[in-house]
Amino acid sequence: METQATINYSRIAEAIDYIKENFRSQPRMDEIAEKIHLSPSHFKRLFTEWAGTSPKRFLQYTSVEHAKKILKDEQATLFDTAFETGLSSTSRLHDMFINIEGMTPAEYKNGGKNLAINYSFAESPFGSLIVAATEKGVCYMAFEDDEGKALDHLTAKFPNAVFRRKLDLLQQNALFIFQSDWSKLGEIKLHLKGTDFQLKVWESLLKIPMGKLSTYGNIAGQIGKPKASRAVGTAIGSNPVAFLIPCHRVIQSSGAFGGYIWGTTRKTAIIGWEGAKNYASF
């Protein structure tokens, strides 16, 4: 016998499939709701609970992902991309990219062209790392012992940017986080791009005090998506700035530390180090 949860899951799965198959026609929310035999308000509430985002937002994500594939074709124009994505104008494409990707379609197509990025390598209590910054703030920081691999990962993030190996003030201020003197922490600036959901998750991580821990469920609740723990975990796994955005402070509800982009051993060491620092400050 089917439970209500099973029925709800089947309905949302059907809605997701419908959006993926019909996004080029940019279906209205009431149209999708009708397909799965729900009222628009009930559909929106149920979809948000199960998918961690609204159906309108999911349609936008799907549309942007398709547009990104088209834009990678050097011959594709913005008009062609908008048309193939089912959008009525390039202005709608522009607004959607700004909202979802934090950049214009042209900037995405250029892959960071004309973006100047300074980078340097440093040592931390948890191994070697690379830190990089634009003129607006730190855009990337990652633990990596091999400098060649570290630079490869950075350039893959911004394939057409101009890179210069130079330690600037933005990077220096960021590296103060590993020191006992925390007076420079207020001067750290970040320059990030991500979906609205990712940015909300990363912002929530910044609110976890040093030496304290949170869970994926708690983060989901704080951003108003209590059933989106799995989506929160995915956003945390996409964190481009190690340590400064403290994804290491998020653990499983069971108390297990869980995974970490830069290694579970390192995560354990960081949590212990921060706990000792926090204890010593009392």
Rank of each mutant, 00 (worst) to 15 (best):
T53V: 15
A33R: 03
C247D: 15
I245T: 08
F79T: 15
K227F: 10
N239M: 08
S238P: 00
P40C: 07
T90M: 12
E101N: 00
W50P: 00
A220P: 02
G224D: 06
E135S: 15
K68Q: 15
P209L: 03
A82W: 02
L190G: 04
I208P: 04
I219A: 08
F178S: 02
F83K: 14
L213R: 13
I271S: 08
G255L: 01
W50C: 10
S54E: 14
E203I: 02
E84N: 12
F143V: 00
R28L: 14
A150V: 00
W50Q: 13
M210P: 04
T268P: 00
E144D: 12
E34V: 03
R165H: 10
I32Q: 08
I219W: 02
K267Y: 01
R11G: 07
A122R: 09
P226D: 05
A269C: 04
P55Q: 09
Q222R: 15
R165L: 12
F163K: 04
I32K: 04
T155A: 05
H153G: 01
S180M: 08
S214A: 13
G211V: 02
E31R: 10
G186K: 12
T104R: 00
G233R: 04
S10D: 11
I7F: 03
I70Q: 07
A242C: 13
E84C: 05
I177E: 09
F158E: 07
G224Y: 03
S25D: 11
V232K: 08
I223H: 01
R164C: 10
N22V: 10
A142L: 11
E74Y: 01
K113G: 09
R57Q: 15
L115V: 15
F79S: 15
T3W: 00
E274P: 06
W262M: 12
R230F: 09
S89G: 08
F23K: 05
L87E: 02
H94L: 11
Q60N: 14
H37R: 14
E21M: 10
K267R: 03
L199Q: 11
T195A: 00
A142K: 14
I223K: 01
Y216P: 07
I261D: 10
A133C: 08
I12K: 02
N160R: 12
V250D: 06
A235S: 13
N8E: 14
R249Q: 13
Q75E: 14
Y260E: 10
G194M: 02
I117N: 08
V201L: 01
K20V: 05
R28G: 09
A5H: 04
G148Q: 06
G217K: 09
K200R: 15
K44C: 09
K69D: 12
D168V: 14
L167C: 09
E274F: 03
N160H: 10
L59H: 08
T53N: 07
Y279C: 11
G111S: 09
D168Q: 07
G52T: 06
T81S: 06
H42L: 11
I98M: 06
P27I: 11
V250P: 07
T53R: 12
I7Y: 01
F143E: 01
R165F: 03
S229V: 04
K44I: 06
K35A: 12
P209M: 04
R249V: 06
A256R: 14
K193L: 10
F47V: 01
F178E: 06
L38I: 03
P209T: 08
P240K: 06
